[in-house]
Nucleic acid binder design. Structure first.
Lengths: 341, 341
DNA sequence: AGTGGTCGCTAAACTGATTTAGCAGAGCAT
DNA sequence: ATGCTCTGCTAAATCAGTTTAGCGACCACT
């Protein structure tokens, strides 16, 4: 890979100057008293030789690598991970940095390995990302340098980036209230484990809190709440079927995520009901499937790209210790309508 | 990040030996005549000091970084990318390597930047990956070192990894033939552009060829073929609606990917038809949605994790120039049944 | 006694950058 | 003539490893 590259010494020789001079010119050092002509000659020589500095040599000396580690539990394999990484990649490129990606797969041995691998490579900082928004404890080994938590918080009060699920909860509830839904709103996706254990999820609790705040302000209470052991389509399907056996049919459904909503759609379709004429549906995440459903599913988007970007910004540009909340925009699609009758 | 780490000199001093001796022992060099006792002392000292070599210093000398560049057009943001990356990550870890990830976003400037960034970091090799299986030309700059194409081929006859779409096409057609479908099989997703331009897609042509081979062998011809401008749910939906207006209703549908099949399901649902009793459906990709559909969608899985793994293996363990085809396993799900009546 | 070979180990060069410390020459004042 | 400052530049150290060349002690053989 790229042998015979020109070195700084080559550039200096060609410019008829010392390595010191060449180094200073190319790094744009202030306060050196090198002549304008010397500058010219160095730039010309570097250009002509296609000089690119050897970063291994540079970082040996400076202890900077212009490289950020992106360590995640399992995020790189999630449907959403791409956006997290893309945002980070973009922000890193803008700052002339590059991303070293590793995955721990939630396994302590792998984590140990990943941490050592990135520390050995002298990365300038670590982004520690989680798949599910949650609280976690970071391995002490990486605390020697800058760390930003992505989609996670920790007891160590490190800078962190989280989606603003609580506000998203309010948006979702308000979207229904504005359309006139009041006494027949049902919720699919309650889950004690997710709501109570911050190491499992922070999103469930925050979304729920947001929804309840908005409903309380409007003095509305939920018609029904369905508990689901997981947030997968099959659970949304089962919950929706359950709701349809009740005496009073809901006018609108809030699902805790899009996959549940997909399941709900399936149950509604089988029951011969149409969205949104018979029932409105709204949810969270903006999974790609939300746009594919017929009609399109209104939802609040997890701003993964923004979050990845923000994490890099906090890491390189410096950031505060309190969590940085990234807004989740409401995607209005055709699954919303005023209540029938 | 990791200041005050012990250096080789520290280890050597503690062991009462020279840096040379310490280096040789720790690298397990054969043919040095260092005593067993010297080995002991070095290992003990390294262990005690928690010594980890500085990789910048090492690679300055050896020109090896134990780092692989994963350069993709836009793959890192696709739903499937995660698996590609995970496979590569796993294989890399097993070989004590790490992945540097960049994206070109199909933009020449970004590509230039990405290539320079990875070459500057002296990576040991490059995996050049594409989102859609296709032919492409790799930037000459990276040809100085080992390169493997992932999900792509190039005119340069570089080692490459591709899914075996043609065989998948045969599996798909055979699955239907085995169930007794013959004269009422329809195909959704023909697309001249994808079939004819290898720089757009290699998958479309290969899948089609496989399907036609299997049908020809059974002396069966397709009832209908629907052309789609894209392979998105809405196009599958439209195509399926079109098929249902014809005099003879198909007994089975082959969709060129799962998103089309999802659209087809939607149209079938609206028409009050059930899968698989009225119509069987089978497709390609094993998008997560295939498992979420009701009934589950039979499909041939893109073996992304395997492919990522294979790419690293070819890169580090050496590989041949002809494309390495990775089988696409058939996922049998409930969307298949013998033709009605 | 001299020569050659093996054993166990080390000094020093080398990789390619950054950075510190300082030198030669010009200009000016005393 | 001397001392001082300023300008424009460079030699050499440094980072932390790997690698080359070779040294001294000991033994065996002629």
């Amino acid at each position: 890979m790229g042998r015979n590259r020109a070195t700084l010494a080559d550039v200096a020789r060609k410019a008829g100057l010392s390595k010191t001079a060449a180094s200073m010119v190319l790094n744009g050092r202030e306060g050196t008293r090198l002549s304008a002509e010397a500058h010219q000659r160095v730039f010309a020589a570097a250009e002509e030789l296609g000089y690119r500095p050897n970063l291994a040599a540079r970082s040996l000396r400076t202890r900077k690598t212009a490289t950020i580690a992106f360590v995640s539990d399992i995020v790189a394999t999630t449907r959403f991970a791409g956006d997290l990484i893309r945002g980070a990649l973009d922000a890193a490129r803008e700052r002339d940095h590059v991303l070293l990606i590793t995955e721990t797969q939630g396994d302590a041995t792998f984590e140990q390995y990943a941490i050592e691998a990135v520390l050995d490579r002298q990365v300038d900082g670590v982004i520690y990302a989680a798949m599910a928004t949650r609280r976690l404890t970071v391995p002490p080994a990486i605390l020697g340098g800058p760390v930003v938590l992505l989609n996670a918080t920790s007891p160590d009060s490190l800078p962190s980036v989280l989606p603003d699920d609580e506000r998203a909860g309010r948006s979702v509830a308000n979207a229904l209230l504005e359309l006139g839904h009041r006494d027949a709103i049902a919720l699919i996706g309650r889950n004690r484990l997710k709501e109570d254990d911050p190491e499992v999820s922070l999103a469930a609790r925050a979304r729920l809190r947001g929804i309840q705040q908005a409903l309380n302000e409007a003095e509305v209470s939920l018609l029904a709440e369905c508990f689901c052991t997981e947030w997968l389509p099959e659970h949304g399907y089962a919950a929706m079927r359950g709701l349809l056996t009740r005496p009073k049919r809901p006018s609108a459904i809030i699902c805790m995520n899009d996959r549940l909503a997909f399941g709900a759609y399936q149950a509604l379709g089988e029951a011969g009901l149409t969205v949104p004429e018979d029932i409105s549906v709204i949810s969270f995440d903006d999974d790609p499937i939300a746009a594919w459903l017929r009609p399109g599913l209104a939802t609040t988007a997890l701003p993964h790209e923004q979050m990845g970007r923000r994490a890099v910004e906090l890491l390189l540009d410096g950031g505060v210790a309190e969590p940085s909340l990234v807004p989740m925009p409401l995607r209005r699609r055709r699954s919303l309508a005023p209540p029938a009758g």
